[in-house]
Simulated scan of single mutants.
Amino acid sequence: MTALSILVAAALGLLVAAAGIGVLRWRRARSIGAMLAVVVVAAVAATLAGVVAITVDMVIEGRARDVVLAVVGVGALVGLGVAYVVARRVVRESRRLVEAVRSAPFIAPQGLPSELQTIANTLEEAYAREQALEGARRELVAWVSHDLRTPLAGMRAMAEALEDGVVTDRRYVSRIRHEVERLSVMVDDLFELSRIHAGALRLSRSRIGLADLVADTLAGVEAVAAAKGVRLAADAAPAPVEADAGALGRALANLVVNAIRHTPSDGTVTLTSGVLDGSAYLAVSDACGGIPAADLARVFDVAFRGEAARTPSLDGGAGLGLAIAQGIVEAHDGMIDVVNSGPGCRFEIRLPLAPA
């Protein structure tokens, strides 16, 4: 074969390839089967163009030319047949995936080609996450609506009594102010949680010591513990971390307030900090009597309180404190966990140590 025939075959192949790409772009919204058919036709046409160039250059005529063209024709038919079978299977499995997506609940069909199987498994995981988030959202709306309705009803009754002159006790005014503060805290918690879930939590990190954070937290919750009759204890060893002191302090305070709320009078809540296994840790231990094993995995769920009745105590919130603490810790590239330990449970935060 001369160089001219090679150039002619290459030129014809490029023209066929360009035409095939143009058709694929023009019909890009068509099915995968149609696209495979275009690919096979382009490949056969390019091969045929090369054969034509060879026959012209070698002046093949008669029986030899017929044999060459017959071989090319058989190859084309085989290629088209294989493409048809493959295209039918791809289309059939794609339709199976579409039908599964349209059904509820979505369950990934099995036996798909590997790429489609990966897509199906990913969709199933995404569907499960979406269902979990939707369930948590509905649960949160129901519980927060109840928590908002209760103080609002009390405030309305007290306001009407004051307005009608039925009572003139200043304690009603004090009680209304207390309920307003509770509602304000709940709204702030909802706003903070929405920022965490939206990924809009902005951290201003600096080098801080966990022992100092423990001391500040104890000072902030001392009045709450005294009102409940709960003792506070600390065993804080230095542990430097790169963190937002305000956000991390709020997470720790949420854990401590939760521990105080569930610890009986004369019980003790202990805070510890230090370095363990190459990471910094903060731990809050209480005397709540432990958490049922079935509830341990749900402790950090939004609005979870672990109570049969969802009515909060007077000092209770909307059940968002632990969820907020988890979001803040994870935003610091840390982990938070809870285990039953001793007379109660132990919440532990793990954070990366600050570089030396």
Results as ranks from 00 to 15, higher is better:
residue 280 A to F: 04
residue 346 R to V: 14
residue 110 Q to N: 07
residue 311 T to W: 02
residue 113 P to G: 06
residue 158 M to S: 12
residue 341 S to K: 15
residue 121 N to C: 11
residue 278 G to F: 08
residue 116 L to V: 11
residue 213 L to K: 15
residue 187 V to T: 02
residue 203 L to R: 11
residue 112 L to H: 04
residue 183 L to F: 04
residue 108 A to W: 03
residue 55 T to W: 01
residue 66 D to I: 10
residue 242 E to M: 14
residue 30 R to S: 13
residue 201 L to G: 09
residue 14 L to K: 14
residue 180 V to A: 10
residue 352 P to R: 02
residue 129 R to F: 04
residue 43 A to V: 03
residue 166 V to M: 02
residue 335 M to W: 10
residue 118 T to N: 15
residue 295 D to K: 00
residue 299 V to Q: 07
residue 127 Y to K: 01
residue 150 T to W: 14
residue 252 L to A: 09
residue 101 V to E: 11
residue 347 F to V: 15
residue 92 R to T: 00
residue 142 A to T: 08
residue 246 G to C: 07
residue 201 L to P: 13
residue 235 D to C: 00
residue 178 H to V: 06
residue 92 R to N: 08
residue 102 R to G: 09
residue 351 L to Q: 04
residue 105 P to R: 08
residue 225 A to I: 08
residue 68 V to C: 10
residue 216 D to K: 08
residue 20 G to M: 01
residue 333 D to Y: 00
residue 207 R to M: 04
residue 183 L to I: 09
residue 206 S to H: 06
residue 198 A to C: 06
residue 116 L to H: 02
residue 167 V to K: 14
residue 41 V to G: 11
residue 157 A to Y: 04
residue 124 E to K: 03
residue 103 S to V: 01
residue 122 T to D: 10
residue 211 A to M: 02
residue 224 V to S: 12
residue 296 L to H: 03
residue 146 H to M: 13
residue 156 R to Y: 12
residue 139 E to Y: 14
residue 135 G to L: 11
residue 118 T to H: 13
residue 277 D to S: 11
residue 273 S to I: 06
residue 28 R to D: 09
residue 67 V to E: 08
residue 286 D to W: 10
residue 247 A to S: 08
residue 14 L to I: 11
residue 46 A to F: 00
residue 247 A to R: 03
residue 244 D to H: 11
residue 149 R to L: 05
residue 13 G to C: 12
residue 354 A to D: 06
residue 234 A to F: 01
residue 283 A to H: 07
residue 354 A to S: 12
residue 178 H to G: 06
residue 22 G to H: 12
residue 26 W to I: 03
residue 247 A to I: 06
residue 296 L to Q: 10
residue 190 L to Q: 03
residue 287 A to N: 15
residue 347 F to Q: 12
residue 115 E to D: 09
residue 273 S to C: 09
residue 202 R to I: 13
residue 108 A to F: 05
residue 242 E to C: 15
residue 216 D to M: 05
residue 282 L to P: 08
residue 252 L to H: 00
residue 135 G to H: 15
residue 148 L to K: 05
residue 188 D to F: 15
residue 321 G to T: 10
residue 10 A to S: 01
residue 327 G to T: 02
residue 90 V to G: 04
residue 303 A to E: 01
residue 356 A to G: 14
residue 173 V to Q: 02
residue 349 I to V: 12
residue 216 D to T: 07
residue 171 R to M: 01
residue 333 D to T: 12
residue 157 A to R: 06
residue 178 H to Y: 02
residue 37 A to V: 01
residue 271 L to C: 13
residue 223 A to W: 05
residue 353 L to D: 12
residue 353 L to H: 07
residue 145 S to F: 00
residue 163 E to P: 00
residue 26 W to M: 14
residue 280 A to C: 07
residue 205 R to I: 03
residue 261 R to V: 08
residue 84 Y to N: 10
residue 115 E to G: 09
residue 109 P to R: 02
residue 97 L to A: 01
residue 331 A to G: 08
residue 173 V to M: 09
residue 354 A to P: 06
residue 186 M to D: 04
residue 95 R to V: 09
residue 200 A to F: 05
residue 257 V to P: 15
residue 51 V to L: 10
residue 210 L to M: 06
residue 262 H to S: 05
residue 154 G to Y: 14
residue 352 P to N: 09
residue 304 F to D: 11
residue 63 R to F: 13
residue 175 R to S: 10
residue 271 L to W: 08
